[in-house]
Design a protein around this nucleic acid. Structure first.
Length: 762
DNA sequence: GAGCACTGC
């Protein structure tokens, strides 16, 4: 097997058709802008350093601890802060492209209510433009800069605070979930996640505390940024017509869309500093030979390693975990063999060090991709990554990119109420983003495992989230903010009539909307909870049924993505067995109850060391569980606000050690020994009646909505247990076939009771 | 009887 792959790898993957990306000549979009008569203003090219993204990743991993322990500027005196800021100004800021064009940019902002700014990587747009405006803000108002990701908001705030000469949380601050470092009176410039600004908007529909809104990375088109832009359009054509300025920052591709959305707002173009990247494509013949994408990636990596000079790592983009694990396994076997061969032939070719990277990988293993190799050892990293490395994570030292041209995407089918996970070709924009990863530090090369003519057939950009995701939560937000006519709302891109109607029906079925389509009291509460509407409904039901504590534990666990990691194939069976053995109730009742058992186990340990050990054995992220605790606490606080009588609700009290009081203690123990499983599962049924399936005589399951067969996913504790009269699942994905994930056993009577109950509540 | 990309409150 190994030998076979090796022979192939020494064969010919030739890349003969080659394009060199040269920003000045090959940027097709600039011409387009000119043609559109919008006269973009084009600024010139300068150096910049937009902060240390490597640090961001480390910082992300250690979260608060890192920030408070190592915050570099807090202990400096006012004078020292100012001195440092002055140095940064002279040595770095003034060299930035954006800084060089400060006056012109300010003029445009001054003359227009909305501008769209195309700032290339390295232009300094996210750090500098907000600072230009900081002196302009009047009577206690603020500037908000939104980011799609937490880490970006936090690290930008840190960087800008240093440049401005203050501590984080003074004039410059940030606000993200679980972490607010801003001062209502003092802070003038606030970096926030787009979700956070949306939440503020639910509280104050006019966003009166802000004078400038800067929507950064708008081209990523997350649902939340799309919603923000829609609300902002309403505001600036309505109540904030006179005194709110908006800057939309975007990559080139989407700039036109934003401009026309905001009444042909002017587009400014600031060039950044990236190094040229040469793109190579497969020939038609090589393309025919390419049967397996994993094999092609492996072959290409070996070829690049042996033909390119030492220095510079290889970053490969693959669609998913499965392909990555395969490729890593092959390369791990191959690398020592290749090394021997090279030595024997006296060839000076570095040893390949394969490293996987995907979100469901444990944080410790993720960090390995950032480690510098010992330069004396003559090694080269080959990082095999999902598109997590496309935007979320920047890996230093990459000079070569190998792109499979594929990604996985979850698509929500409104008609069916289920999502499918598909492997699809990426867009041109993604191709460019991926190849750009080779040109961050020096000139680079990108090898695309498809034909050059295939590139031209790719869609310009990926489908935006809003048209391929479940929009029940966005719709709830619109209702909460008081939008009456949702179909004709100022959608940047409408998800479509069907999607909207299906989504509204869903909200109606959950009791969030009444017969007239107005938000009910329950809907108000649901909108305030930072959860999907289904889960909010589960929580609210649990408050009625006096099992809020257990349900809260489980809901908090469900809110953390990748809490249970997918064990690698070698340890898969043993980890599954351990999980099975550790949840006596879970193996009877299913995965929700298993989570409750895991939660109890986790918090009952006396030391962090024990917790970590246990997590390691069970293949659970420790950090994930810390998030579970934070989320539980936050949900509890929200619920208290929603319902003041909760304070008196004994069941509600947390069993968590640090919060224990005497009475609490008693109750907590009592409850944990007698989880009212029936009540807990019934609460979940209130959110997931539609996600149920009935057991058939042939031991298969058929969904109670459409009668289709559905299989229990192998990751479920219920996988081997086929005797449940009915099942409920929190997720339904269609891959090779229809799979129910996170499955619980339910009784048919419950299903009848709840199904009728739900109607009754309408 | 067999496996899921990435974010956010």
């Amino acid at each position: 097997m190994v030998q076979k792959s090796m022979n192939k790898s020494s064969g010919n993957t030739k890349y003969i058709s080659k394009t060199v990306s040269n920003k000045k000549s090959s940027n097709p979009f600039r011409n387009k802008l000119h043609n559109k008569n919008k006269k973009p203003v084009i600024f010139q090219d300068f150096d910049e350093d937009e902060g240390d993204e490597f640090l961001d990743n480390v910082l992300d991993d250690n979260e608060h601890k890192f920030i408070s322990d190592k915050e570099p500027y807090r202990k400096l005196t006012q004078n020292e802060l100012k001195e440092r800021a002055a140095t940064i100004l002279e040595t770095q800021r003034k060299k930035l492209p954006v800084y060089q064009n400060k006056d012109q940019i300010l003029q445009y902002i001054n003359d227009n209510q909305v501008i769209v700014l195309i700032g290339e990587t390295g232009s300094g747009k996210s750090t500098q433009i907000p600072q230009f405006l900081i002196e302009n803000v009047t009577n206690g108002k603020k500037i908000a800069v939104t980011q799609p990701r937490r880490v970006a908001a936090i690290s930008l705030a840190g960087r800008v605070a240093a440049e401005y000469g203050c501590s984080i949380g003074e004039e410059v601050g940030y606000s993200v979930r679980f972490d607010n470092r801003s001062n209502d009176k003092k802070t003038k410039l606030k970096y926030v996640t787009d979700g956070m600004l949306l939440r503020e908007l639910m509280m104050d529909k006019e966003l009166n505390q802000y004078e400038y809104l800067i929507i950064d990375e708008a081209h990523e088109r997350t649902i939340l940024t799309d919603l923000l832009l829609g609300f902002i359009k309403e505001l600036i054509t309505g109540k904030r017509n006179k005194n709110l300025k908006v800057i939309v920052m975007s990559a080139t591709l989407q700039a036109d869309k934003f401009s026309s959305f905001f009444g042909d707002a002017p587009i400014l173009f600031v060039k950044g500093r990236t190094y040229p990247v040469e793109n190579y494509h497969l020939t038609a013949k090589d393309c025919e030979d390419q049967s397996d994408i994993v094999e092609s990636i492996v072959r290409s990596a070996i070829q690049v390693n042996s033909s390119e000079p030492f220095g510079g790592d290889i970053l490969c983009f693959l669609p998913g975990q499965e392909e990555i694990d395969k490729a890593v396994t092959i390369l791990e076997k191959l690398a020592p063999v290749l090394k021997e061969t090279y030595l024997k032939d006296k060839m000076k070719i570095p040893e390949l060090i394969p490293l996987p990277l995907y979100a469901a990988l444990s944080p410790a293993k993720q960090l390995l991709v950032f480690n510098k190799l010992n330069s004396k050892k003559f090694q080269r990293k080959v990082i095999l990554s999902t598109n997590i490395a496309e935007t979320s994570v920047t890996i230093p030292g990459v000079k070569y990119v190998i792109d499979s041209g594929l990604r996985k995407v979850k698509i929500w089918r409104h008609e069916l109420g289920l999502s499918t996970l598909l492997t699809v070709p990426i867009s041109k924009a993604s191709c460019q983003q991926r190849s750009g990863r080779a040109g961050r530090e020096s000139e680079g090369k990108c090898y695309r495992l498809f034909k050059e003519q295939d590139f031209s057939t790719l869609p310009a950009q990926s489908e935006s989230e809003i048209i391929r995701c479940d929009i029940s939560n966005p719709l709830l937000i619109l209702k909460k903010v008081g939008v009456k006519d949702i179909l004709n709302w100022s959608w940047l891109e409408s998800p479509g009539k069907t999607a909207i109607i299906v989504g509204l029906e869903e909200l109606y079925n959950l009791g969030a909307l009444n017969d007239s389509g107005e938000l009910t009291e329950k809907g108000e509460k649901m909108a305030l909870l930072p959860l999907a509407p289904h889960l909010s409904n589960v929580l609210l039901e649990a408050m009625e049924r006096n099992c809020i504590s257990s349900v809260l534990d489980i809901v908090a666990c469900l809110s953390v993505e990748n809490l249970l990691l997918n064990p690698s194939p070698e340890i898969r069976d043993s980890v599954n067995e351990k999980r099975y053995q550790s949840s006596p109730l879970g193996r009877k009742h299913g995965d929700l109850i298993m989570l409750k058992e895991f939660y109890d186990t986790f918090i009952d340990f006396d030391t962090v060391a024990e917790q970590k050990q246990w997590c390691h054995e069970m293949c659970i992220t420790y950090r994930g569980f810390q998030n579970v605790l934070k989320i539980r606490k936050q949900l509890k606080e929200y619920l208290k606000k929603i319902d003041a009588s909760l304070e008196k609700n004994q069941n509600f009290k947390s069993k968590k050690k640090e919060e224990k009081t005497e009475s609490d203690d008693e109750f907590g123990n009592e409850e944990s020994k007698n989880i009212d499983i029936e009540s807990v599962l019934k609460c979940f049924l209130y959110g997931f009646v539609k996600n149920t399936a009935i057991g058939m005589p042939d031991r298969s399951y058929r969904t109670s909505t459409t009668g289709e067969t559905i299989s229990i996913h192998p990751s479920s504790l219920m996988f081997s247990k086929k005797d449940s009269p009915a099942i409920m699942y929190t997720e339904y994905v269609f891959t090779s076939k229809g799979f129910a994930r996170n499955v619980s056993r339910i009784e048919l009577e419950w299903l009848q009771e709840i199904a009728m109950g739900v109607r009754k509540f309408k």
